[in-house]
Simulated scan of single mutants.
Amino acid sequence: MKPVIVIGAGGHAAVIADALQAAGVNVLGFTDADPAKHQSKQCDLPVLGSDATVLAGSDRNDVLLANGVGGVKGTDVRRALQQRLQEEGWRFATVIHPTAIVSRHARIGNGAQLLAGSIVQALAAIGEGAIVNTAAVVEHDADVGDYVHVAPRALLCGAVTVGNYSHIGAGAVVRQGIRLGERTLVGAGAVVVKDFDGGGELVGMPARSSAEGIA
């Protein structure tokens, strides 16, 4: 793989840089909008400067980017960043930690990130820019949409469908065959046993819309 610059210098960016280094990729450093971080180091790598300054001095043909924006504040910021830079001609690295178990029969979208200990089984599909975070499991035939974040230790059982821009919280479980619409937020530890059209939050065991309240 070509050398990589990580966009962002927060916690998720550090995890991405570490995963790339573990896979033997040359990581040049980070960018960040905060001038106070410039010339500092993270994971023994330099924060090189702002996005605009660093990318202006880099060649699109020689360098790949990695999306270091995490999913805590939702997927919109992450998605907008990646799509804007792709429209400018930059290409994003697909990040697969060497301890991730990924079926050769799975489909992994451009710029997706499969982190340490994650599992993606046969015939699963992971969308563009999606994150399958630490120790998360995506079972067979599951379809994970673009820019979805499957948080640490979440479990998507077989043939689950997760719509674009959704977030599956840490430790959540989605039962086999469930369909979740776009922009669904599944709370940490929730157990989803029914389909949901999307555009809202599911919480509890069994999960129900937060708009309904929890009994």
Rank of each mutant, 00 (worst) to 15 (best):
A130I: 08
V15K: 03
H167P: 02
G169K: 01
G200Y: 03
I5A: 05
V102H: 07
H167A: 11
L65F: 09
A136K: 06
H12Y: 09
K73D: 13
M1H: 11
G204M: 00
G117A: 09
A135P: 00
G8V: 06
D143I: 13
R60L: 10
V77E: 12
R78T: 09
Y165Q: 15
D18F: 02
D195A: 01
Q42S: 15
H12A: 01
A80P: 01
F30C: 12
I119G: 07
G213P: 02
L185I: 14
V192W: 00
A80V: 11
Q82F: 07
V47E: 12
D59P: 08
A13L: 05
I16G: 04
F30E: 12
A17E: 05
A14Y: 01
G204L: 01
V15Y: 05
G127M: 04
T75D: 07
W90R: 06
G199V: 00
G198H: 08
L202N: 01
F196R: 03
S166N: 04
N164R: 13
A33S: 14
V192C: 04
A33R: 11
T99S: 15
G70K: 03
G11T: 13
V191R: 00
A215S: 12
T184C: 03
G171R: 01
A80N: 13
Y147V: 06
A136N: 01
G74E: 10
G29S: 08
L81E: 05
G49L: 11
Q39S: 15
N67E: 09
H38A: 13
G200W: 02
R91F: 06
P35R: 11
A190D: 02
A93V: 10
I101K: 09
G8H: 04
V144R: 04
P46I: 12
F30V: 12
H38V: 14
D18Q: 13
H167D: 06
G57I: 01
K41N: 14
R104K: 13
L114T: 04
I7H: 05
D76S: 14
Q21T: 12
I7R: 10
G70Y: 07
E212C: 05
P3D: 09
A80S: 13
Y165M: 15
A170Y: 06
V54H: 07
V25Q: 09
G109C: 07
A151C: 14
A122L: 08
D51L: 12
G169H: 03
A100P: 00
H105F: 15
I5T: 08
S50K: 08
L155F: 10
A9Q: 05
Q39E: 15
M205D: 13
V72D: 10
V95Q: 00
V47D: 13
G129V: 02
S50W: 07
R60F: 05
